[in-house]
């Protein structure tokens, strides 16, 4: 079992993408099949950017064992008002300046869902959001 935590700060666009890039490197080194490495990397990138754009700060946790890879994104707030809406393609609450940077197209969470085997999201206003994406290595 291998596990590592990557803190992600809010609004830090300069370093956005670094955590997911590190996650990808680790998975490659460990010898995870390339298609799963890609899926985890995409999900990690999307969740990392969500932390940068929407959260008050949080962390990504990568856990790997020979059967399952789990990617957890956890933040300290503000929480999602309507989770079902947030999961809809094209729905975004990102402000204009973020959209001008090419983000906030409303594809983040749908993309995470599309690129994992099992998806869970729990959010509470004022408390924060936790997203879990699981990947099963043995079925592939």
């Amino acid at each position: 079992m291998f596990s590592r935590v990557f803190p992600v700060q809010k609004g830090m666009f300069d370093t956005a993408g670094e955590a997911s890039s590190k996650i990808k490197k680790i998975l490659k080194k460990v010898g995870i099949p390339p298609d799963i490495v890609r899926d985890v990397a995409i999900a990690a990138y999307e969740t990392e950017l969500n932390l940068v754009i929407h959260s008050l700060g949080g962390e990504l946790t990568l856990s790997v064992n020979p059967e399952i890879i789990e990617l957890i994104s956890q933040d300290v707030g503000p929480g999602i008002n309507d989770v079902n809406m947030a999961l809809k393609e094209g729905y975004s609450t990102a402000p204009d300046d973020v959209r001008d940077m090419g983000f906030g197209a409303g594809m983040g969470l749908p993309n995470v869902q599309r690129h994992c085997h099992e998806f869970q999201i729990a959010s509470e206003l004022g408390r924060g959001t936790t997203i879990r994406a699981k990947y099963f290595l043995k079925n592939n």
């Binding site: 079992m1 291998f2 680790i26 490659k28 080194k29 460990v30 010898g31 995870i32 390339p34 790997v64 064992n65 020979p66 290595l137």
Partner: peptide, 20 residues
Amino acid sequence: APQWVMTLSDDVGEAMRMMD
């Protein structure tokens, strides 16, 4: 053919221990 030149070990479990 893919070449696995970067992986730590052929065995995922062993590779994870090495990574740790």
